[in-house]
Write a protein that binds this DNA or RNA. Structure first.
Lengths: 146, 146
DNA sequence: TGGTAATTGTTGCTTTTGTAACTAACAAGC
DNA sequence: GCTTGTTAGTTACAAAAGCAACAATTACCA
């Protein structure tokens, strides 16, 4: 296979990782500095805020995070009063998680900050480029349109 | 600021991370399974193969990896004979790294596999979408066109 | 019903990463 | 020549992530 023309600099997983890491830095600084959240903690909060009550496994499935990471993130967030667990009486293995008022406040703040931050990220791209970019990323990540 | 219309599902750092993680999995399985490389090790190999001899710091600057990670990756790769270190006599702090024949062979194999893998990644996207995607990612990652 | 398998969530242990301190070498200014 | 500051790379310790085993339920099905 004559592939000597392929340049690793354009290797998609590489480009994606570089862009992901770079674009995460600024926002990470905010939620870490303001709330002391780890990345997984922010993600758990984000999913509960965005989709409503869920169990740990459900969050993990959506966010592609291993359940042990979620377990520990939930433990910390619960301890810090950002969310509560409620036992599902119909299936006592499940613990349904939801945000406390404090958690919702943090979520809403972070959501606003995210909107602004997102704008800065795509500042140099045209509307059309942004559209194509997000669509391609959703496709690559297999994220359904809800 | 009326931003209630912003949906976190489109938050760029999130989309990028999801896409990056998902798209990395398959290739990671290959270099891990075949060579036992960690991600940083593959990256070091990749940069030395793509750009030629470099020092650890230079690799770190290009790849945005902290020097301690590089230090450990280099130690392992050297031990396993994939690369060699040469002291720069003009500046004895610097250690110039380069691939051994074994390292080059691994690099070339991985490079070929990457080309194929890359194709699979973008299989569902049009030529134009691919072009826009890569350009946008390079922009976000601040990767120069070389 | 009873027994095997699957699911939810946690914990212990190992591996990997992050942070800070450190050595060694060079650079710049006086 | 000194002194101070900077740079390359390593190492030690702490934090986080990955992995495997576990208890507690529930599901399946002969």
């Amino acid at each position: 296979m004559a592939r000597s023309d392929f340049d690793l600099i354009d290797f998609l997983p590489y480009l994606l990782n570089q862009a992901a890491e770079k674009s995460s830095l600024g926002f990470q600084a905010y939620y870490k500095g303001t709330y002391g959240f780890l990345r997984t903690e922010w993600r758990v909060l984000f999913h509960l805020g965005r989709y409503g009550e869920m169990t740990a496994v459900e969050i993990g499935a959506r966010a592609m995070i291993h359940k042990t990471k979620i377990s520990r993130a939930v433990a910390r967030l619960t301890e810090r009063r950002f969310l509560t667990r409620r036992e599902d009486m119909a299936d006592r293995r499940r613990e349904v998680l939801s945000l406390t008022p404090l958690g919702r406040k943090a979520f809403e703040d972070l959501c606003e900050k995210a909107a602004v931050y997102d704008r800065d990220c795509v500042a140099g791209l045209s509307e059309e480029e942004q559209r194509v970019l997000r669509a391609a990323l959703r496709h690559l990540a297999n994220i359904p349109r809800d």
